[in-house]
């Protein structure tokens, strides 16, 4: 049992609260630095695109935000499922902590996509398969948040929103494959596992910003889950003894 106890030590809100607090700066500062580096490469190193001239530079935020909006949803659904199955409170709290950040990335993906689409396709919005499924993703996030907020008892709220998150996760592969199944307006992925046709500086910028976004998400979600822990465990002794609550 010795190993098991160690392993689960950090899954208890009490120890996780302290650990998360220490970790946040190690994610937050590298995120800021990598953002700056990524933007520098994207705007000063990457060349002008033959077809799209400068508008394509929106890609360096649009693609990472879109990738993250999908990944965060899967991770959120995963934590929600864990909380549902194992009744581990911290898993459900993580799902609640991820939802707002996921929603914001879905919004950024749609917003930057629209501002890229206007000059390139001539329209802010098109009922294209990918755009529509990404919009559904945003509504799923907002639905998760609303469902969580609308139910008084946290345990019941977690259960209800977990079901929504799990059911909604079928939408993520739809977004990903939408460009192949219905090859409508949105172009296919220019980053394949076999490599990419993009200019090396473009790859570097996008990848740097993608990593920066990941680090940002971890830092923000860890910070938010600590607040959720404080809110939900407010009547426990260990919270009462915390220095910052004196």
């Amino acid at each position: 049992m010795r190993l098991a106890i160690n392993w689960f030590k950090y899954s208890a809100p009490t120890t996780f609260y302290g650990l998360a607090g220490k970790l946040i700066p190690f994610f937050a500062w590298p995120a800021a630095i990598l953002f700056a580096v990524g933007l520098y490469i994207g705007f000063f190193v990457a060349p002008t695109d033959a077809v799209q001239s400068e508008a394509y530079r929106i890609m360096f935020i649009h693609v990472p935000a879109s990738i993250l909006s999908m990944f965060i949803y899967l991770i959120m659904a995963g934590y929600a499922a864990l909380g549902l199955i194992f009744k581990t409170r911290l898993s459900s709290m993580m799902a609640s902590a991820l939802a707002p950040t996921g929603a914001l990335f879905a919004f950024i993906s749609l917003w930057t996509g629209a501002l890229w689409g206007k000059p390139m396709w001539g329209a802010w919005w098109v009922w294209d398969a990918r755009l529509t499924s990404e919009l559904i993703l945003l509504f799923l996030y907002l639905g998760f948040i609303a469902l969580q907020a609308s139910i008084e008892d946290p345990r019941r709220a977690d259960r209800a929103s977990a079901l929504l998150a799990i059911v909604g996760s079928v939408n993520v592969p739809i977004i990903y494959y939408s460009v192949q199944w219905w090859n409508t307006l949105h172009q296919g992925s220019s980053i394949k596992f076999s490599g990419t046709s993009m200019h090396v500086a473009m790859q570097q910028s996008m990848f740097t910003i993608l990593v920066a976004c990941w680090l940002y998400v971890i830092a923000v979600v860890l910070a938010r889950v600590r607040s959720i822990i404080l809110e939900r465990e407010s009547n426990t002794q260990w919270v009462k003894d915390l220095a910052e609550t004196k």
Binding site: S53, A55, R57, P100, I108, T112
Partner: peptide, 24 residues
């Protein structure tokens, strides 16, 4: 000016940056 695309490029990065700041 971004070769005429300034509004779209800075509209994208500006809003994204704003969203991050607000969330923080």
């Amino acid at each position: 000016a971004m070769n005429g695309y300034g509004f779209y490029v800075w509209g994208s990065y500006g809003v994204a940056f704003l969203v991050f700041i607000i969330e923080i």
